[in-house]
Design a protein around this nucleic acid. Structure first.
Lengths: 208, 208
DNA sequence: TAGATTGTTAATCGATTAACAATC
DNA sequence: TAGATTGTTAATCGATTAACAATC
């Protein structure tokens, strides 16, 4: 009920994937042990912050030597629910949507786009990267009873909110939104926005 | 010297483009006046926070009635240095790079990709969306003496850091980085990262 | 053991929010 | 004028950092 406390702050959760990313690099370099200080280096966080963040989930390190890279990696993957494959559906198969369909970085990290939808009759039925584009009209048919809970939206801004509403009704629980609009959705649905224009506008403040 | 105080917190700056986005929508709907409460609605911020954010730059509203939409828009554009066209160079003309070249949302918001670079000999010399792809080897020739200060990086992770170093030497001041790696750069260079995998990983924590 | 580094507590810092006088 | 809403101060909240005992 209400806000179950003992909740980990979202800002902490959002740093864990960054630690994971760096740990994967470090692992590739063959390092087996790493201190919080080394992990923090060049990552824009402090060693103390990393230790504090991790302490939310237990003690993963060893005094005197630091963290076992493989073990910490596995622990973080556990915490983030990444020890499984997450299926996702793509909405909007324009330039960006097609680029995302082609992107190797998703599947190598355990995210798999299993369905793609578009309104364009020219696209519907076409196979792209092994996926047959379906009409958005048919979305409910295939998706609502499925295990797919993640939607990636790359439709035009004007269509995003209406689509998102349908997705929520259909049972999607997480939306990665590339449309340049703030979606209004029930708070139990997680929404993350990726909008390069907002980012460029922010950086412009610091230029000149 | 050191940290010139009176600095506006970066978190405030990062909200201004969101206000701008909503104001543009509101303007399209024909509204000419808006209260901080209306502006805050559905935006995930409070009315107080908007007023506080804006108060960093002066008073833009009128007691009793709120903010003039057009005037506030113009003020925000001024503050963010958006009353000019910002030229950008694109590095990496793969699927994502080509999608960004095609994206209408940049130019309509005053960001123009004026040059594109890639290492692939198959791509170099090809014209895409009116832009002739150049070899990355030739980057310094055209860019270092130019007014282009924004770089967009969509090269593979392994090449991003080396490229970024060259960009900094060349005089770029802002980097929008799509490569899944944390770049280590002098702090006077602004870097923003866009990595959908990190975002999905964060959302996965809340799923299931 | 001596040195290094964790996990955690307490202090500090900064951001958000509540409240309200000013004023349109 | 009465009602609405701003801009701002002071209070609160939450996140970061410093410090250090515990311990490998």
């Amino acid at each position: 009920m209400a806000n179950q406390k003992n909740e980990i702050p979202e800002i902490v959760i959002s740093r864990l994937p960054i630690y994971l990313q760096k740990l994967n690099q470090v692992l590739k370099e063959g390092k087996t042990l790493i201190s919080s200080q080394e992990l923090a280096d060049h990552l824009g966080v402090t060693a103390t912050q990393i230790r504090k963040d991790l302490s939310n989930f237990g003690g993963f390190g060893k005094q005197g030597s630091g963290y076992n890279v493989v073990k910490l990696l596995e622990s973080l993957r556990d915490i983030l629910n990444l020890n499984r494959i997450w299926k996702a559906a793509l909405f909007g198969v324009g330039n960006l949507g097609q680029a995302l369909l082609s992107y190797k970085g998703f599947s190598s990290k355990g995210f798999e786009i299993v369905a793609a939808f578009d309104n364009d009759p020219q696209l519907v039925g076409k196979e792209i990267k092994g996926i047959t584009v379906q009409s958005v009209d048919d979305m409910e048919k295939g998706m609502c009873a499925s295990e797919v809970k993640i939607a990636i939206i790359t439709v035009p801004a004007g269509q995003a909110q209406a689509l998102a509403n349908r997705l929520v009704d259909c049972g999607f629980k997480a939306i990665l939104n590339y449309a340049p609009v703030t979606l209004v959705l029930p708070e139990e649905v997680k929404v993350s926005n990726i909008d390069p224009v907002l980012v460029l506008q922010k950086m412009a403040y610091y230029l000149d």
